[in-house]
């Protein structure tokens, strides 16, 4: 409650007192401030989590870094603001953060009634179930009557209700407000099942006292496209956030990596590569950024594939397969409109 109060008071104050003055553009504000305020989770391995030194890492954090690299030319000029599921939208609406990159599912309601816009998808997820091996359950359809631990304020709560209703099963939902409390309650045996997006289940499992005793069931019961969110009505900023992500995907498609980007910039003859790196074409003009904005993203953060492998893929403890998140020409659905 305490954590929730601040953004809500801020929103209320902003909405109440902000007279009808036109809002300054987010890009100008970020440039003037010299720091990009990025809303992330309170700690979710692989997506956004701070280590013991307070250094943030994860696939969502890397999107924050890409936006900062494109806008400010420096991926380290970021203030990370950890938010729980309940606080996130209010924090964005109130202007406490400039963009929200916190595993947020893109839905019609959220896109249309919160005064927010989703800029794309940086991870295609789906809701799954984590159960204790002792239960001997092989499929989610055997979960009738189960007690289920969930984090509040997520689409997960709604999907769960839909799934159990569709299959004529009953359940008891035990709702907590942080990942930590949810995992702890599951660990204690308060629930038979922990449900969340599948990617999160792998992360949360590493936090259990005996990770090997828990197993993720095969069923995926929902579509959870997770992506960055910005305030509605600031189209220039919306474009910057949208294309920062697209540039990372395009870079993977073109085979440009953090390691070879300088070499590519110096010697590549490919028009597509030259366009992305700002040597030809519209470059940064349309976005109002420096021409090397995409180069900075790749140089400082890496392409989408590198970011994925480093944080959640084979180079990480989570070891998640690319699956849907592979490029469109490699069996996945990760796709970007042409950068030209």
């Amino acid at each position: 409650m305490k954590k929730l109060t601040l953004p809500i008071v801020a929103t209320a104050a902003a909405l109440v007192f902000a007279a009808a003055f036109t809002q300054a553009s987010t890009k100008e504000e970020v440039t003037k401030r010299g720091v990009f305020n990025c809303g992330v989770s309170t700690g979710l391995p692989g997506f956004s989590i701070a280590d013991e030194k307070g250094v943030w890492a994860g696939i969502d954090v890397d999107v924050c870094k890409a936006i900062a690299a494109a806008t400010l030319g420096d991926a380290s000029k970021i203030k990370y603001i950890p938010l729980n599921a309940k606080e996130r939208f209010t924090a964005l609406q109130s202007g406490e953060i400039d963009a929200l990159v916190r595993g947020t599912t893109w839905t019609l309601t959220r896109d249309t009634s919160l005064g927010l816009n989703f800029t794309g998808v940086n991870y295609y997820d789906g809701q799954g179930f984590l159960v204790s091996k002792k239960l001997g359950v092989k499929s989610a359809l055997e979960l009738d009557g189960a007690a289920v631990c969930i984090q509040s304020g997520t689409t997960t709560e709604l999907n769960l209700a839909d799934y159990f209703k569709e299959n004529n099963m009953s359940y008891k939902a035990v709702v907590f407000d942080t990942h930590d409390a949810t995992a702890k309650a599951f660990d204690n045996g308060r629930c038979d099942v922990l449900t969340s997006d599948q990617s999160q289940l792998y992360g949360l499992r590493t936090h259990l006292s005996k990770p090997e005793d828990a197993v993720v069931l095969p069923e995926v019961i929902s579509k959870e496209p997770l992506g960055p969110v910005v305030r509605q009505g600031d189209d220039a900023w919306f474009n910057i956030v949208k294309w920062s992500l697209n540039a990372m995907i395009q870079a993977e498609e073109l085979g440009i990596t953090q390691a070879n980007v300088d070499e590519m910039k110096a010697s590549s003859k490919s028009p597509a590569v030259r366009r992305l790196l700002g040597l030809e074409g519209i470059a940064g003009k349309g976005l109002g950024l420096n021409d090397d904005w995409a180069y900075q993203i790749i140089k400082q953060v890496g392409n989408y594939g590198e970011v994925f492998e480093r944080n959640v893929g084979t180079g990480s403890p989570l070891k998640i397969e690319r699956g849907l998140n592979a490029l469109w020409n490699k069996g996945g659905i990760m796709y970007t409109p042409p950068l030209r």
Binding site: K86, S152, G153, V175
Partner: peptide, 15 residues
């Protein structure tokens, strides 16, 4: 937890 938590988040009508 229920109303100012889940309901708020599902509807977004904080005020």
């Amino acid at each position: 937890a229920v109303f100012a938590g889940t309901t708020l988040n599902q509807t977004g009508q904080a005020i």
